[in-house]
Design a protein around this nucleic acid. Sequence first.
RNA 1: GGAAAGGUGGCUGAGUGGUUUAAAGCACUGGUUUCGAAAACCAGCGUGGAGUAAAAUCCACCGCGAGUUCAAAUCUCGCCCUUUCCGCCA
Length: 427
Amino acid sequence: MLDIKFIRENRDIVESAIKNKNREINLDDLIELSDRRKALKQEVDGVNQKRNEAAKSRDVEAGGQLKKELELLEKDYDEVDKKFISMMVKVPNIPSLDTPIGKDDTENKVVRKWGELPSFSFKPKEHDDIGKALGIIDIDTAGEISGSRFAYLKGDLVLMQFALLQHCFGILTNKEKLEQLAKNVNLPNDLTSFTPIIPPVFIKTAVQNRMARFMTPDEHYMFPNDDLMLIGSAEHTMGSMHMDQIIDESKLPLRYVGYSTAFRREAGSHGRDTKGIIRQHQFDKLEMETFCLPEHSIQEQDFLVAIQEHILQSLGLPYQVVAVCTGDMGFPDYRQIDIETWMPGQNKYRETHSADLTTSFQSRRLNTRVKRADGKIEPLHMNDATAIAIGRTLVAIIENYQNEDGSIRIPEVLQPYMGGQQTISKK
RNA sequence: GGAAAGGUGGCUGAGUGGUUUAAAGCACUGGUUUCGAAAACCAGCGUGGAGUAAAAUCCACCGCGAGUUCAAAUCUCGCCCUUUCCGCCA
């Protein structure tokens, strides 16, 4: 959520943000609502003042009158307040100046590329064909048992998942390694490494709303009896960890890396990516979530992207870094950077990482604030970014490291975590 | 799931209908003192909103939401959460 004062003072900026993010909101209506809300609030305050005086002087009659008056006023106020809030939460965050303006993902800009695309002396296969032949991905049985977009991962592929996790946790908790990566992005603070987290996968719907994401109910698995829903990302229960807290400036930045399963209904994507395990209802992910001072948040995002790139480089997977355009970026994002990894079987780059800088947009709604050394209190800035999406990374490894005989080489950095094993081949 | 107790500012903790404008202590900040520090003493010290040049001042907030009353931290109802015991369970 934006600050209403900011909206009042920066009409043009907000107006063009709404347009460039393909939203429709009438700011005149919003500001009129805000004015009415303010005026009604002042009236309510005035009546309350008289009411307090009447109570103090034990004036029963006047108190009774004022009570009735207040009741009517409060009804008006509540109504206007409700409308005001529901409109406020529909105003998206302002995109950064370096965000490309564009309608949809076709207008995203490739910022840089890394790695040479592998060349094959044979036609590279897609991951699901390789996985099925090796007996490490079973989509057919999962279809019988759980339905479409589920899979059984088996054998060495499961071991590879845990190898990836160990590898990434090792990087994210290694201070020297992080200091090297931070060098290029001018991070001002002493480097604090990431605290590993296993977050809950259920979240109260009221809290999820305060993550200020644009929610279509169809996206999530809902449990109305318990007023809970399954998270679509560890971001949901990690970003809200400091809800309603005031954090001392000296404690920032706070950095977390969480491992959890993410659950998505994918209701709006029927027919898309139906092959293999690219788009699943359930997938595991390591997610970075950081809280920092407003003046450091851009470098912080650059830092998170540097970590993502380092992870992909360590695995020898070619990728491209993409500046996501206004029409495609997230509702609460100030700047969104995606990384797409090369998938030779599909002969294209596919999204494996995303880094969202949401500035104060989420923290204002979550009421997560920083207390400055001079005592001033303001919303802090939040970043979230994929450390590694395991399913899609496994896909990338399978397709990039495939051999003509259908076996898969194991990336060197993962071998120590898999008992020194060098290939996955048919048992 | 059953039973009980509880939720008050950064922390501890008093307050069971109106001298509470939420006591007191700790922590914190500034000052006095000191060569410097500690101790002591003095002062300040919640969040959000309205208001002002800045103040003053006003409103709301005692887990959340309703209700009773002229008046609610305090009484009633619902919900959420925590702790303890029992049951069940990985």
